[in-house]
Amino acid sequence: MGRKKLLIVDDQIGIRILLLEVFATEGYETFQAANGRTALDIVRNHTPDLVLLDMKIPGMDGLEILKKIKEMNKEIKVIMMTAYGELDMIKEATDLGALMHFTKPFDIDEMRLAVNMQLGEGDSRSRFASGT
């Protein structure tokens, strides 16, 4: 199977470093991108299992990136990270196929649990369960 791949997309370097450290420790192969173009290149070349995607990215916003990721491969799971007050965008993100969102500042342990749950490490049931 190989390790599960995780892509972190955020223009804030501090958040990327924090999440990279957490998820590398969890044993994931982690990639990072500061903008949409880099993110989509990584999706194209590495096909991550899950993307942690910030809603507000300069240049190409999170919804646009989400749309393009899902066009490339709708199996890729996406969790949005949002600033307070972006509720209208969250609904749209959910409609586009995002699984859930975390509002910044998020609880890193909750994020870790959510990712582990989505990537279902060692739990065969979750691999066949289809969420609606």
Results as ranks from 00 to 15, higher is better:
Asn73Arg: 12
Asn35His: 10
Asn45Ile: 01
Val43Thr: 05
Ala33Ile: 00
Glu21Ser: 12
Ile57Lys: 06
Ile57Met: 06
Pro48Phe: 01
Lys74Phe: 11
Lys74Asn: 15
Asp54Gly: 09
Ile79Cys: 11
Lys67His: 14
Val78Lys: 08
Glu26Ala: 14
Ala33Ser: 10
Met72Ile: 13
Ala33Lys: 07
Asp41Trp: 01
Asp61Met: 01
Leu18Lys: 07
Gly59Asp: 07
Arg37Lys: 15
Arg44Lys: 14
Asn45Cys: 06
Ala39Asp: 02
Ile42Cys: 00
Leu50Asn: 00
Leu66Phe: 08
Ala24Arg: 14
Gly85Leu: 08
Met81Thr: 14
Ala33Gln: 07
Lys68Asn: 15
Ile15Phe: 13
Leu20Pro: 00
Gly85Met: 06
Gly36Ala: 04
Gly27Ala: 08
Val22Lys: 14
Asn73Ser: 14
Arg16Thr: 01
Thr25Ala: 14
Leu20Trp: 11
Lys77Val: 10
Leu66Gly: 03
Gln12Val: 12
Leu52Lys: 01
Met72Ser: 14
Gly62Cys: 10
Leu53Gln: 04
Gln12Met: 13
Asp61Asn: 10
Asp54Pro: 06
Lys68Ser: 11
Gly59His: 02
Ile65Phe: 03
Arg37Pro: 00
Leu53Asp: 00
Lys67Arg: 15
Glu29Trp: 00
Met55Trp: 05
Ala39Gln: 02
Glu29Thr: 14
Ile13Val: 12
Asp41His: 11
Asn45Val: 00
Ile79Trp: 09
Ile69Met: 00
Arg44Thr: 13
Thr38Tyr: 00
Asp54Asn: 11
Leu40Val: 03
Gly27Ile: 01
Arg44Trp: 09
His46Trp: 06
Val51Ala: 08
Ala33Thr: 02
Ile57Arg: 01
Ile15Ala: 12
Glu21Trp: 12
Met81Cys: 13
Lys67Val: 01
Glu86Lys: 08
Ala24Met: 13
Lys70His: 10
Gly59Ala: 07
Asp61Glu: 07
Leu20Gln: 15
Arg37Asp: 14
Asp49Cys: 09
Arg37Met: 10
Gly36Asn: 05
Gly27Asp: 08
Glu71Phe: 01
Met72Leu: 14
Leu18Cys: 06
Ile15Trp: 09
Lys56Pro: 07
Asn35Cys: 08
Asp49Thr: 08
Ala34Pro: 03
Gln12Asp: 12
Gly14Lys: 09
Leu63Met: 02
Val78Gly: 09
Leu50His: 07
Asp49His: 15
Ile79Met: 13
Val43Asp: 08
Gly85Ala: 05
Asp41Phe: 02
Phe23Thr: 02
Phe31Cys: 03
Met55Tyr: 12
Val22Glu: 15
Leu52His: 02
Asn45Arg: 12
Lys77Arg: 14
Ile42Ser: 06
Ile79Pro: 08
Lys56Gly: 07
Pro48Ile: 03
